[in-house]
Simulated assay, not measured.
Amino acid sequence: MLKKSWVGLAAAALVLAGCANNASQTASGGSSSGGPGDKVSIMVGGLNKQIYLPFMLAQRLGYYKDQGLDVTLQDEGAGVDATTDMVAGKVDGVGGFYDHTIAMQGLGQQLESVVSMLTTPGEVELCRNEVKDQIHSPADWKGHNLGITDVGSSTDFLTQFLAQKNGVDPASTHRVGVQSGATLIGAMQHGNVDCAMTTEPTVSTLLATGDAYVLLDMRTAAGTAKQLGGEYPATSLYMTTDYVTKHPDIVQKLVNAYVKTLKWIQDHTGADVAAQMPADYYAGSGKDAYVKAFDSEKGIYNPTGIMPPNGPSTNLKVLQAFNPDVKGKSIDLSKTYTDKFVQAAK
């Protein structure tokens, strides 16, 4: 299939940046913490996904307000599109996978993670039951339709890497953007994709209906190391280096809220989490399944917010294996993240 070019995305973002509103202005249609305070807008690559739980949870717990922030959270089905909007100046930050900071540096764009929220991707590759006799591992993916959130997304990165690692040319697969939740479930149930990479609560929903089986699981450190070769820091808050440099006070307040949220997660159960979240966050899978999913994968959350020391090199290795925007490029990983705000929060 034709791959959406990160070069094209970056170029489009730069054009849009010239006419975008000031990044400190919040866009309509988002979820705001309300009240007076420093305004900041964050676009999240799937607010109801458990891998992005800290963003909404911080709001529900009142931690943004405690820091004197008026935060608007906007939902976007894929991190690649959220990244483009941020570079264009439409939002201040992105709740997405850390690996986008590496991919964009390969294109000359400086982004950095300011707090690490997940130490593993929390991703699961599901396949529909009708192909159970055909697909036993990624080595069987040739010629099959593979669901990802969107072309150029982190699930696209991981899918291509897993294909290549298992001897399959990514170009011989058909990667289809199906986002997550209801759209991904529909694509699986109607046979539009044979396998798809997704997270909770979508995983539990498909397994509960008996429509899919687990091909591989990266919700644990062991499962991640088996598939990717080491730690793979995933969810983070990342921003342009320019924004971080110009607004260190706002960044520090955000990180304070997220470090406190990550600590809250460690001290509470799935039932506690579900009680805080909007009911529609677990409407598809049901509250019991949502609670069970959280309790089973609680270990994905970073208890400190510090970037895992050996993680960035694994992310880089994955991207260098297939991504032309990164392969052969000189990437300075020290510029793709900073721990100084987390250390100050502690």
Results as ranks from 00 to 15, higher is better:
residue 5 S to Q: 11
residue 7 V to L: 14
residue 9 L to N: 10
residue 11 A to S: 13
residue 11 A to M: 14
residue 15 V to Q: 14
residue 17 A to C: 08
residue 22 N to V: 02
residue 23 A to E: 12
residue 29 G to P: 02
residue 31 S to F: 15
residue 35 G to R: 07
residue 37 G to Y: 11
residue 40 V to M: 03
residue 43 M to A: 15
residue 44 V to Q: 04
residue 47 L to S: 07
residue 63 Y to H: 11
residue 66 D to I: 00
residue 66 D to V: 00
residue 66 D to Q: 15
residue 76 E to M: 15
residue 79 G to R: 08
residue 79 G to V: 03
residue 82 A to K: 05
residue 86 M to Y: 04
residue 86 M to C: 05
residue 87 V to P: 08
residue 89 G to F: 02
residue 90 K to Q: 12
residue 95 G to K: 06
residue 98 Y to Q: 12
residue 98 Y to C: 08
residue 102 I to V: 11
residue 107 L to G: 09
residue 107 L to D: 05
residue 109 Q to D: 04
residue 111 L to W: 11
residue 111 L to S: 10
residue 111 L to P: 15
residue 116 S to I: 02
residue 119 T to Q: 14
residue 120 T to V: 14
residue 121 P to R: 13
residue 130 E to G: 01
residue 130 E to P: 01
residue 131 V to N: 11
residue 132 K to C: 02
residue 133 D to C: 06
residue 145 N to R: 15
residue 149 T to F: 08
residue 149 T to D: 11
residue 157 F to A: 07
residue 159 T to G: 12
residue 162 L to P: 00
residue 166 N to E: 06
residue 174 H to P: 07
residue 184 L to K: 09
residue 187 A to Y: 07
residue 188 M to E: 02
residue 189 Q to E: 09
residue 205 T to R: 11
residue 212 A to I: 01
residue 217 D to Q: 04
residue 218 M to D: 06
residue 225 A to W: 03
residue 231 E to K: 08
residue 233 P to Q: 01
residue 234 A to M: 03
residue 234 A to I: 00
residue 237 L to G: 05
residue 238 Y to G: 08
residue 241 T to K: 13
residue 243 Y to F: 12
residue 246 K to S: 08
residue 246 K to R: 14
residue 251 V to E: 04
residue 259 V to D: 04
residue 261 T to N: 06
residue 263 K to D: 12
residue 269 T to D: 14
residue 270 G to V: 01
residue 272 D to P: 03
residue 273 V to I: 15
residue 275 A to N: 15
residue 277 M to T: 03
residue 278 P to N: 12
residue 287 K to Y: 08
residue 288 D to E: 14
residue 289 A to M: 02
residue 297 E to D: 10
residue 306 I to L: 14
residue 313 S to G: 06
residue 314 T to L: 04
residue 323 N to C: 08
residue 323 N to I: 01
residue 325 D to A: 14
residue 330 S to E: 11
residue 332 D to N: 15
residue 334 S to I: 02
residue 334 S to F: 01
residue 339 D to M: 07
residue 340 K to W: 00
residue 343 Q to F: 01
residue 346 K to I: 04
